[in-house]
Design a protein around this nucleic acid. Sequence first.
DNA 1: CTAGACGTTGACGCAACGTCAACCGCAAGC
DNA 2: GCTTGCGGTTGACGTTGCGTCAACGTCTAG
Lengths: 247, 247
Amino acid sequence: MERTIQEVARLAGVTSRTLRHYDELGLVRPSSVGAGGIRRYDAEALVRLQRVLLLRELGLGLPAIARVLEGRADDAEALRAHREWLRQEQDRLARQLASVEATIESLERTEEPMAEDMFDGFDHTRYKDEVEERWGKDAYATSDAWWRGMGDDERRDWQARSAQLGADWIAAAEAGIAPDSDEAQELARRHVEWLAGIPGTPGAVKEYVTGLGELYVADPRFAANYGGEQGAAFVRDALRVYAEAHL
Amino acid sequence: MERTIQEVARLAGVTSRTLRHYDELGLVRPSSVGAGGIRRYDAEALVRLQRVLLLRELGLGLPAIARVLEGRADDAEALRAHREWLRQEQDRLARQLASVEATIESLERTEEPMAEDMFDGFDHTRYKDEVEERWGKDAYATSDAWWRGMGDDERRDWQARSAQLGADWIAAAEAGIAPDSDEAQELARRHVEWLAGIPGTPGAVKEYVTGLGELYVADPRFAANYGGEQGAAFVRDALRVYAEAHL
DNA sequence: CTAGACGTTGACGCAACGTCAACCGCAAGC
DNA sequence: GCTTGCGGTTGACGTTGCGTCAACGTCTAG
């Protein structure tokens, strides 16, 4: 009562290629092999295949399945571990989806008031006078030229990225995490990276970064970008820790 | 004002390997290349890198990012498509998680009453007399020996799979889908596969499968397994359609 | 005897890099 | 002048689970 590889494939709803793959991995071996290497499967092999497919449908990896089949792992245990996996993946996806939606909205929102809000989210280029006073006329001119040289898409992406950075800062501040926590420091790193992408800025220079942090707190126009004075203070603290450690 | 590959990597929070990879793909090329192929990146390249990282954080694939950067695709459009992706993935994960949890519960529940419920979910081997009468003494003996020859783990997996098949049938019947729909036919395929894994059964034989369907409806003991008479009727209809088409 | 259906064993491809391996260039210390 | 060490380079393989050729054997029906 043995079946050919095609019969088994049809029954199990997989391709013969998959069965050969499982044979190769030792997951499901044919009960016997005939002339020319022809594989034949009996009912026992089918049951083994069903165990594999059950676990595979649940999302377990083939190595994990192999461990269960070899008796080197408990199936309930493997599934509990896998459940954790799934939950974390679910969280990750939820966060990513929220980010994507925020970004789409941000992209669509900034389409119209392009002229007015051109410098929105720019920090130091947003206010020409302040910039010139603090970093020199040259810096402002460089940044401005760079900005004007951008295409529309680039500009929109840049704004989306800036908006997202601000949103992430606010979220982190509201979550009540510490400015020296890994999460906040990762945000600081992104902030510095973001600054470094603006020509005319000193970039990743310790004094510039820490000074900017103070500016955020002192000036409500900047602070608004980072969730008010509270949020701006959080940004300042995180940036200071980061600058001390890495710049 | 150009930076080395390591500086850029540190600023952007990626490895230099990633930057070389992006160069190779044409995603982010260095602004200039010095002696010995040394890559140097200017602010413009950094901005381009930031666009890539923004989209990558949102989960877009590198080819999709490339299309956006080349202006061959709209970024908002790409993100909307990606949002659909994410939603479907979320659904898939939710379903898988529910399945895993049901299976874990099933595995844990059947641990104790192993002796009594040994034949639970077995359909035709559950009731010795009926089986012998319908399919002959030989069939019962074969199935019984096969079952007794199983290890505990295999038995539990088998039961979990059986229970899940029943649960999926009930869910499908309650969802109100048609017996000849793709979804129901896939269940029928699984059912036949499941039957084929039991030695002593005729297996994937048209008359056996359709006859079994009638039995499910006629006998409340079986019907209970498939959500009562209503559910059993659904199973019967789906099995009949499948048998006609494929057996 | 041959065509055709089905079987076999490699081997490449995919996504996004991580991780060697083997080599080169440059600066500092002996 | 030579070694050591850091940082740069270009391949090339490994990862997950098969899909998809390619090239070739085997079995059966006409």
